[in-house]
């Protein structure tokens, strides 16, 4: 599998400091003329050991930002693929605190180059304690948290804790969000704003929602500096299409699916994961042919 390790270093150094690890990374890639590839895997699937392996394999195959999913009993934003993986991970005994190991492993493996964001339903963070979670995640080298069921209106504790510990906080916007809510969410987010491409849950789709491009434009107009698109992206071609207009392409179910089949040997599943990742990584690289190697968006 083609790794991209090292190629971004000069751009990294040229990138403006955004006050956010993920923000810096995305800006560095923007300077290279492309969108970031953000890859999601649930921790603990099929078990903690193998899932660390899978996350690092995904990094080696070309994701720019890692999204570590915390398995949860009631994942209302997730479709069947991620639900199944989460259920299996929980049955395998994964614990919330295990996510810290993953953040550490990614930071070590990449020398801090690849930011690791945690994606967690809110009750898990609440139960851990909002400030303790932020403190421990920052200490483990994690970059921040994506919160699918926490809106900024309910997030006062999290905003304070993420400020205190220098973490990114990624809130979501959806095609149904009003202009007022886009403004509120853009102002509350750090790192990037997560634009849900469609009204729906995670899962591969034939087509990425046609409202995604408009939503990205509207979210930028509402003040967001970086907007990444998730839900439904599964192929390199879709990544190329979304990478044309978004600052990052978020892929989950399509990656998780490569690991699901118990009857396939683990090594073959890792190969499939890397092949899928490489295809997506290739997609974001051909999204903007001829883009300058400087940031072009004004």
């Amino acid at each position: 599998m083609s790794g991209t390790t090292g190629t971004a270093a000069p751009a990294d150094m040229a990138a403006p400091a955004t006050g956010s690890r993920t923000g810096d990374r995305i800006e560095a890639l923007r300077a290279e003329g492309r969108a970031a590839l953000i890859g999601y895997l649930p921790i603990g699937f099929p078990d903690v050991e193998r899932s660390v392996e899978a996350v690092l394999a995904m990094v080696d195959a070309g994701v720019d930002v890692v999204e570590l999913g915390m398995p949860y009993t009631d994942p209302v934003m997730d479709g069947p693929v991620i639900q199944r993986a989460a259920e299996a991970a929980l049955a395998g005994g994964v614990r919330a605190r295990d996510v810290l190991r993953f953040a550490e492993a990614v930071a070590e493996h990449t020398g801090g180059r690849v930011p690791a964001l945690v994606m967690s339903y809110w009750n898990l963070v609440l139960r851990y304690g909002v400030d303790p979670f932020a403190r421990d995640l920052a200490a483990a080298g994690g970059a921040g948290v994506i919160t699918p069921d926490l809106i900024p209106d309910e997030g006062a504790d999290w905003i304070a804790a993420s400020d205190a510990h220098g973490l990114d906080r990624v809130f979501l916007v959806a095609p149904s969000s009003t202009t007022e809510r886009l403004r509120l969410t853009a102002a509350a987010s750090r790192g990037f704003v997560y634009a849900a491409s469609t009204m729906g849950v995670t899962g591969a789709r034939e087509q990425v929602g046609e409202r995604a491009e408009q939503l990205v434009a509207d979210t930028r107009a509402a003040g967001a500096e970086r907007v990444c698109v998730g839900l439904g992206v599964s192929t390199g071609d879709q990544a190329a299409e979304v990478g044309r207009y978004a600052d990052g392409v978020i892929v989950g179910s399509a990656l998780v699916r490569t690991l699901l089949d118990d009857d396939t040997p683990w090594a073959a599943r890792l190969d499939a994961l890397q092949a899928r990742t490489a295809d997506l990584a290739d997609g974001v690289r051909r999204a903007r042919p001829g883009a300058a190697s400087r940031g072009t968006r004004s």
């Binding site: 209302v76 069921d149 809106i151 979501l172």
Partner: peptide, 12 residues
Amino acid sequence: GGRFVPEALIAA
């Protein structure tokens, strides 16, 4: 109480 739901539902 509150509203701990995905943003997609807030408008509704």
